[in-house]
């Protein structure tokens, strides 16, 4: 298992991968990707029990579903650097004939991806389904999922949240990226969602919070705690506060970099703030 410094180095490289991917094609979603760099890196490098290679069924290993598929740059970077496909393939992000589609898909056969996502609000149901199958199969491994906070405005989530508690889907850890931003602005301006923690609790989930989702130690501590609460009759939700655009100073604390790529000069600034640690692709 990597130590904290190794994880810091990993995340720094992932941030470089994110901004370089979106810069090259002048499209994609850097803001949410940067904000979740610690979380997804910690999941794949530290938390998940994963098998070598990739098969769709994923029996005998932990699974992860990315519901907010637009943060594909961070997902692709972590998958590549966790051995699912060649790191050089990050060069093909959003290009024609690429396996790295704008939003993740199984359609082009990219290893590591088990469901298409992008149209929001569908990933929690899928994660519940995979968790159901693990139970039927007697597979004790866990299912993790990640959701944007704005994504919770989609009604299907609340069907799924109700179901998971009612049916005691307790082999599932669903994390909400609480960055308070969505495309049109601050979530509180677009459609205030109130107390998300209280809502999950009211639906019968076991909820814990990670106050700083951009702090690796806190993410590890929070996810360890979440893991310890599985298997106790309740699905586990992690409400994780992050800063959209984290790690690139001019992209932080604003929704403006939700879906905008940096220009050449901005790229240089962003890279200067995130040292090359594991080698650029």
């Amino acid at each position: 298992m990597p130590n904290t410094q190794q994880l810091e180095d990993f995340v720094s490289q992932v941030r470089r991968d994110i901004v370089r991917q979106v810069h090259k094609v002048n499209s994609g979603h850097p803001g949410g990707s940067l904000g979740c760099a610690e979380f997804i890196s910690v999941l794949y490098q530290e938390m998940m029990d994963r098998k070598e290679g990739f098969d769709m069924d994923g029996n005998g290993e932990d699974l992860f579903f990315l519901s907010n598929g637009h943060i594909s740059p961070v997902f692709y970077s972590v998958l590549a650097r966790s051995g699912y496909f060649p790191i050089e393939e990050l060069n093909t992000f959003r290009l024609i004939n690429s396996r790295l589609q704008g939003h993740p898909t199984t359609h082009e056969g990219l290893p590591g991806v088990r469901i298409a996502s992008g149209s929001l609000g569908q990933g929690l149901s899928v994660a519940i389904g995979a968790a159901n199958t693990k139970k039927i199969n007697g597979d004790k491994h866990l299912v993790y999922s990640l959701h944007g906070d704005g994504e919770l405005q989609e009604g299907q989530n609340w069907e799924a949240i109700m179901y998971a508690a009612a049916k005691k889907v307790d082999n599932l850890i669903a994390t909400v990226d609480r960055n308070h931003q969505q495309i049109d602005g601050c979530t509180d301006d677009v459609l205030p969602m109130g107390d998300i923690t209280a809502k999950f609790e009211a639906f019968g989930w076991d909820v814990l919070e990670i106050k700083d989702g951009n702090n690796i130690s806190e993410v590890i501590k929070g996810l360890e705690e979440a893991k310890s609460r599985t298997g106790k009759g309740k699905p586990v939700a992690v409400i994780m506060t992050t800063v959209m655009g984290h790690g690139v100073d001019f992209m932080m604390h604003t929704h403006k970099w939700h879906g905008v790529a940096p220009n050449d000069e901005q790229l240089e600034k962003a890279l200067a703030q995130n040292p090359e640690t594991l080698g650029d692709y």
Binding site: N59, S125, A130, N132, Y163
Partner: peptide
């Protein structure tokens, strides 16, 4: 799996249940 009056959730759960061979 009785999912209640929640067809969108049912379709998503069904998709997820294929992962693992169902």
């Amino acid at each position: 799996f009785q999912v209640g009056i929640a067809e969108a959730n049912m379709m998503g759960i069904a998709a997820g249940m294929t992962i693992g061979g169902k």
